[in-house]
Design a protein around this nucleic acid. Structure first.
Length: 951
RNA sequence: GCAGGGGUUCCCGAGUGGUCAAAGGGGGCGGACUCAAGAUCCGCUGCUGAGCGCUUCGCAGGUUCGAAUCCUGCCCCCUGCACCA
């Protein structure tokens, strides 16, 4: 047999596919389309295992859909703007452009070696002028639509990255990229008004196929809450405090108001008073708040009285005004109406500063509130409202009543608050898309003319270690220009765009990537994007940022008239982590670098165990895809990845598991050579093999349709092999049948391990390539059910016999010599057949079962009556845990019973095989009662369950 | 605290009311082949032992003729958000 040589097979077919342009596709309205997309990589050098997993999933799905006759769009590109290239350029003293391109070339090579079937004509890089010119063009469109705004605002500044960050890029007050501390800074910045789409972004989540956790994260991020804005006029002043609350039903329990220390009214109220110094202390403390302080602050809620009072708009009561360190300036209005009776945080605060606590909601209807010493935060029935028409109202009714009272008195209104902020997209960095605007001393900030696009990044910049800031700002050739409207000397904007901007529409560009005239043609996009990208695969880390931005872009571009699509991704699959073992101390609950393998815990000195942990440089537990491909070939790596876990699940790398998948591949590879030895004689096994193939294929295609790739490869790469081996073992010997089975099987092997499948296909003598083949899913034949059931019957008999064998050995003196199989007698078959038929007609066995039985001829024989009763019971009622057989027979078993399958004949035909399988010299088969009854097994025989004994 | 997802046999993992002592894989054990190793193939892998029965799917209850599966409460793990009013 020829040795499995993956490298030779793989390179050969990769060239063949490329020559035949099998992955090129174009919009064609007469064909059903499938747009398969993976989150494109940041070209950081080499492909890592996470990429391999991501793209192995995508390529299998793309190939599967092509095989099913879909017009598949499957593109690849590079998200190539961004800081790492800039930092690398600084280190080696070059230009980010050069760094980026050499990285892209390396990644492209890796992708090709894996055999991913991209339409390479569509390859794009976002740092390419031909791409980012459209970023700028779209930006001008957005500007026309009023979605762009430049304004001075407090922004998140990362010193380490030397730039501002979007809200989405700040986590726990730290930078998402470098984990450096983020501080607030007032700066003029560019914003995209994403908040205009807040409602649509939230509501449309219901419609799309995102995983629940991703939807939850987006909902959370958008953070829509319904409530009211309530005016609290300040006593002896014209100023009014606007407070946002989600609980207007607690308005009568407001006993103080708390402002964020940054709230402008604080300053007004305290300045020049005795309260000023305490306030300043608090405000200063909050201003220099570091993350460390924030954590402490969670336990330490502080506030200061500002010396003034406000009026509760519905009661007229004067209530004190405080500034509190726990009030967030940027959420709502930065002012909170405090209800210590019904908010635990306010409750704690009131106790600390000795402020009255009023209870205005009762837990139970018609009762007084309970005295629990805690705030009751649930919905309740209004009490103690001090105004007519409120007491007794509950929940949303109570809220509505308060809101309408406020509105009629013009003291507030129902409002909706969002947590979502506008997208701050300007960055003070070089390696990004220049924002196409010009600062003119005469005309102000003016957009670059469309005809003047692109505003290109200069290549004559040299980066060096010491360089800080944005070199664009000091690049005379770039900065100096003239105003597009008045022509006077003017300066270019030197901020560039957040790189998330680039990836917010790349999926649209892919549809029409070679278009030099426009960003994309609307018709082409509407074809490929109808219903959205059909399958989008990528990491969960983009659940909020990228996926939200892309959704926003799609909607905004739709409103610009550029497409008819509202949601970019119809089905999102977030592939799980790739894990590998890492040293781990269970006592300290800490993972260590692999160099600690086999040593003791550096902290507690106990021996380290291992645990599966995300592959990372910091733990050193990464596995290089290149080495694995070199060792096992791309197909084995792909099979291993798909087989070890379903796409969404976490996956553990295991050397022994990939080794065993390699064995599996070798075994599969050897199959075609086995058919050469077949003689061509037919046997009953031929029908069985074809029936199994059909049934596996149906299961396989259903799984693949559902992106359950693990189940898919289980059918194609494991069960099919098992069945093939069983066919041979059972004496299958028909070459023609085998070839027909193998042709179908090759199709099933193709999506996950395309090279091997293609090789196999050609060795079967097909002229065309599998890559251009469309397969038809064969329907099951009516007879399949019984064909499969017969073989299953044989396996059951053998399994049972084997089971009993061990026991028999203890009961029989000396060696076992023979097996005696006693099939059920005719009357049992007959009775069971009747029962099955009656069950199919919904016969009520409880009601009429006994009557039927008593009128049956076999029942008239007194000696048999006991056996008859027992069989009947087993068949229609069951005992204890086991239900009656009529309820539990499989379709196949039912078919065998109804067609009066002759077990005795079938077993006799296969007696030689039974003997071999059970390793016994003699096999005796007879109908119960027609031969010697060994071990009293004749009685126990049932249809499809013969009595089995040894002697 | 809020939200989302989980807890199945030595391990990974399938399983959404009865054909479930529970697929598949890994690991382990045994057998065949072999001078031997490897590869390959076959079998075993909860207790019991002529198919019964018994115990088992995080813990405790409940519904049901029947529960890994449905309901209630609790415990634990992961992920995300979080002084959000």
């Amino acid at each position: 047999m020829e040795e499995y040589n993956p490298k030779a097979i793989e390179t050969h077919w990769q060239h063949a596919w490329s020559d035949a342009k099998v992955s090129d596709s174009k919009a064609d309205k007469s064909l059903p389309k499938f747009y398969c997309l993976e989150m494109f990589p940041y070209p950081s050098g080499h492909m890592h295992m996470g990429h391999v997993r991501n793209y192995s999933i995508g390529d299998s799905m793309a190939r599967f859909r092509r095989l099913m006759g879909y017009n598949v769009l499957y593109p690849m590109g590079y998200d190539s703007f961004g800081m790492p290239a800039e930092n690398a350029a600084k280190k080696i003293g070059g230009h980010p452009h050069d760094v980026t391109w050499s990285n892209i070339e390396s990644i492209r090579e890796d992708l090709k070696r894996m055999g991913f079937s991209y339409d390479w004509r569509r390859e794009l890089a976002t740092s390419d002028k031909e791409y980012y010119r459209w970023n700028q063009w779209i930006f001008l469109k957005f500007h026309e639509m009023g979605l762009v705004e430049r304004r001075t605002a407090p922004v998140n500044w990362c010193d380490a990255c030397d730039t501002v960050l979007a809200n989405e890029q700040v986590k726990n007050n730290r930078c998402w990229r470098c984990s450096g501390e983020v501080r607030q800074k007032d700066m003029a910045q560019w914003f995209l008004k994403m908040t205009k789409y807040a409602d649509e972004l939230l509501d449309d989540l219901e419609e799309i196929g995102f995983p629940e956790n991703v939807k939850a994260m987006q909902r959370n991020w958008i953070g829509r809450s319904h409530g009211a804005e309530i005016h609290f006029p300040i006593v002896d002043s014209d100023d009014i405090i606007q407070a946002f609350t989600t609980r207007p039903d607690t308005i009568f329990g407001v006993t103080f108001v708390t402002l964020a220390p940054e709230h402008p009214l604080c300053e007004t109220l305290v300045s020049g008073t005795e309260f000023e110094s305490d306030y300043r202390e608090l405000a200063d403390e909050c201003a220099r708040m570091s993350e460390f302080d924030r954590i402490n602050m969670l336990r330490d809620k502080k506030g200061v009285f500002l010396g003034r009072y406000a009026t509760n708009p519905l009661t007229g009561d004067a209530i004190p005004i405080y500034a509190g360190n726990f009030v967030v300036a940027s959420y709502g209005t930065g002012a909170v109406m405090a209800v210590p009776g019904h908010d635990q945080r306010d409750h704690d605060f009131a106790k600390k500063y000795d402020i009255p606590i009023a209870q205005v909601l009762a837990e139970e209807e018609g009762r007084e509130p309970k005295q629990t010493g805690r705030a009751f935060e649930g919905l309740g029935w209004m009490v103690n409202s001090g105004r007519d028409g409120f007491d007794g109202l509950y929940g949303s009714e109570a809220k509505a009543a308060v809101i309408s009272a406020l509105e009629s008195e013009q003291m507030g209104s129902g409002t909706i608050q969002y947590r979502l902020k506008d997208w701050l997209l300007s960055r003070q960095r070089f390696w990004g898309t220049p924002i196409p605007f010009i600062h003119c001393p005469q005309c102000g900030v003016v957009p670059v003319r469309e005809a003047d696009l692109p505003v290109a990044l200069p290549l004559d910049v040299t980066f060096s270690e010491g360089l800080s800031g944005n070199p664009l700002a000091s690049h005379e050739g770039f900065v100096n220009t003239s105003c597009p409207s008045c022509g006077t000397a003017a300066k270019r904007e030197t901020d560039t765009m957040d790189t998330f901007y680039d990836s917010s529409w790349y999926f649209l560009r892919f549809c029409d990537a070679m278009n030099a005239e426009e960003a994309f043609n609307k018709d082409v996009v509407d074809y490929w994007m109808e219903g959205g990208v059909d399958l989008y695969i990528g990491g969960i880390e983009h659940a909020v940022m990228h996926l939200l931005y892309a959704r926003f872009f799609t909607k905004a571009l739709r409103d610009a008239g550029l497409n008819d699509v509202s949601e970019p991704f119809s089905r999102l699959v977030c592939q799980g982590m790739v894990n590998a073992p890492a040293p781990f101390c269970s006592d300290c609950n800490v993972e260590y670098h692999v160099e600690h393998d086999g040593r003791d815990c550096p902290t507690c000195s106990k021996p380290l165990g291992t645990r599966s942990a995300k592959m990372s440089k910091s733990l050193g537990n990464t596995v290089s895809p290149e080495i694995m491909i070199e060792k096992y070939g791309a197909d084995t790596v792909r099979l291993f990845i798909l087989f070890s876990a379903n796409p969404e699940a976490g996956m553990d790398w295991s050397d022994s598991a990939i080794e065993s998948n390699f064995k599996q591949m070798k075994a599969i590879h050897s199959v075609p050579s086995q058919i050469a030895t077949l003689s061509g004689a037919s046997s009953p096994m031929d029908d069985w093999l074809l029936a199994r193939t059909r049934s596996n294929m149906i299961r396989w295609s259903n799984s693949m349709m559902d992106v359950s790739l693990r189940d898919g490869v289980m059918a194609s790469h494991f069960d099919m092999l098992t069945d093939w081996q069983w066919y041979l073992r059972r004496g299958g010997n028909n070459r023609e049948v085998a070839e027909s089975c193998l042709s179908v099987w090759a199709c099933m092997l193709y999506p996950a391990t395309p090279h091997l499948a293609e090789d196999w296909w050609s060795s079967l003598g097909h002229d065309s390539m599998l890559a251009q083949h469309v397969v038809e899913i064969q329907n099951e034949m009516e007879s399949d059910c019984a064909t499969l059931a017969k073989e299953l019957y044989l396996r059951n008999v053998i399994d049972t016999a084997r089971n009993v064998k061990q026991l028999a050995e203890r009961h029989v003196d000396g060696e076992l010599e023979m097996i005696v199989i006693q099939t059920a007698p005719a009357w049992k078959h007959e009775l069971v057949k009747s029962a099955v038929r009656m069950h199919a007609e919904d016969f009520d066995f409880k009601e009429g079962g006994n009557k039927f039985l008593q009128s049956h001829p076999v029942f008239q024989n007194d000696e048999m009556r006991g056996d008859v009763m027992q069989l009947w019971r087993n068949v229609v009622v069951g005992q204890k845990k086991r239900r009656g057989r009529v309820h539990t027979y499989s379709d196949g078993q039912r078919a065998l019973i109804e067609t009066q399958f002759d077990e005795t004949v079938f077993l006799l035909e296969n007696s030689e095989f039974i003997g071999r399988a059970l390793d016994i010299g003699m096999v005796q088969i007879h109908v119960s009662g027609e031969g010697e009854d060994v071990a009293g097994k004749a009685k126990t025989s049932m249809p499809l369950e013969p009595g089995i004994a040894w002697r």
